[in-house]
C-alpha cells in the first residue's frame, strides 16, 4: 500500500448541548505520496473536521487515520497547515512569520540556512523584498502567500489547506493557483485541499473527493488526468467541462440527501 494518507471508515460526532451531532459517518480517503487531493462537499458537512483529523488535532470516535501506515494519535511536526484566515502574527515581520515553525520543530538547518530557505520560498511566491514588512502592510493575497510559505518552511510531507483562497478575489485566486503549481513542482509534499470551488479542485488536484451532506461519508471520487503543470486554459477544455458537470451533479445529490435527512428537518 503506497498511500501516504489513509483514512478508513471514520466516524465522528461532536458533543453538543442537544446531544451528539454526527459529522462524519463512513469517511474513506486515500492519498498517494506526492498526490494532491481536493475535498468538496456541501457547507458544514465536516470538511474542516477532516483537516483536524489528518493534523492529529483530533482523534476520531471510530475508524483510523494513518500517515505512512502509522495511526495518527497526536500532532506531528511533518504536517503544514494553511487556513482561509492567514493568521499571521501581526507583531512579527513576514520573514519572522515564515520562520515560526522552525522555532518549534527540531531542525538540522543553521540559522542562516533557515533564513535562506524562508527567503527562497518568499521569492518563489513573489514576495521577494517584502520580508521585513509587517502583515498589516500587505494585501490579503500577499498575506495568504506568506501563510503558504510558513506552512512549507519546515518541509512537511503533508500540506493541509483549508479553503486558503476562499476569501480572495477571483484574479488573486487564479494567481495563487499558479503559485501552488510552482510550489508543488519544487517542494515534495502530499496535499489535501478543502474547497468550495469546483474549478479550483480540478485545476489543483489529481483526485477530487465529494463528501455527502452531514454526517459526511465519501460519496464520489473523481480522478483528474494529470500530465505535469497546468495552465488556466485547461479549465475550458471539453474534458474539464465534463468533470465540472459531474462534480456539480454529485454536489447536488449530496445537498438533496442532506435536506431529506429527517434529523436535519427536526432541528430546523
Amino acid at each position: 500500500m503506497n498511500a501516504l494518507i489513509d483514512i478508513r471508515d471514520v466516524h465522528h460526532a461532536y458533543a453538543t448541548s442537544s446531544g451528539p451531532l454526527p459529522v462524519l459517518a463512513g469517511l474513506d480517503l486515500s492519498v498517494r505520496e506526492g498526490g494532491f487531493t481536493a475535498v468538496v462537499g456541501p457547507s458544514g458537512c465536516g470538511k474542516s473536521t477532516l483537516t483536524r483529523l489528518v493534523a492529529g488535532l483530533m482523534i476520531p470516535d471510530r475508524g483510523t487515520v494513518s500517515l505512512h501506515g502509522e495511526p495518527v494519535t497526536s500532532p506531528r511536526s511533518t504536517v503544514g497547515m494553511a487556513f482561509q484566515n492567514p493568521v499571521l502574527l501581526e507583531w512579527r515581520t513576514i520573514l519572522q512569520n515564515v520562520l515560526l515553525p522552525l522555532e518549534i520543530v527540531p531542525t538540522r538547518l543553521s540559522r542562516s540556512q533557515q533564513q535562506e530557505r524562508a527567503l527562497s520560498l518568499l521569492e518563489l511566491v513573489g514576495l521577494a523584498g517584502f520580508e521585513d514588512k509587517r502583515p498589516s502592510e500587505l494585501s490579503g493575497g500577499m498575506r495568504q502567500r506568506a501563510s503558504l510559505c510558513r506552512a512549507l518552511v519546515h518541509q512537511p510531507d503533508v500540506l493541509i489547506l483549508d479553503e486558503p483562497f476562499g476569501a480572495l478575489d477571483a484574479f488573486t485566486r487564479e494567481d495563487l493557483w499558479q503559485i501552488m503549481h510552482e510550489l508543488k513542482a519544487r517542494e515534495p509534499f502530499t496535499g489535501v485541499l478543502i474547497t468550495h470551488d469546483l474549478r479550483e479542485s480540478i485545476f489543483l488536484a489529481d483526485q477530487v473527493v465529494v463528501l455527502s451532506g452531514r454526517p459526511a461519508r465519501t460519496q464520489y471520487v473523481l480522478d483528474v488526468p494529470s500530465d505535469g503543470p497546468r495552465d488556466l486554459d485547461m479549465l475550458y477544455t471539453p474534458e474539464s467541462v465534463e468533470m465540472l458537470a459531474t462534480l456539480r451533479r454529485e454536489i447536488q445529490i449530496a445537498r438533496e440527501g442532506e435536506s431529506a435527512d429527517p434529523a436535519e428537518n427536526a432541528r430546523s
Binding site: R52, S74, P75, V79, V87, E103, I160
Partner: peptide, 22 residues
C-alpha cells in the same frame, strides 16, 4: 482565533509555547 492555536498545536507545540509565542 482557534486557527492561531492550531497552527502551533499541529506542529506539536506545548500550551506554554503557544501562550508565550502567540
Amino acid at each position: 482565533e482557534p486557527e492561531y492555536r492550531d497552527i502551533l498545536r499541529s506542529l506539536g507545540a506545548s500550551q506554554f509555547t503557544i501562550f508565550r509565542k502567540i
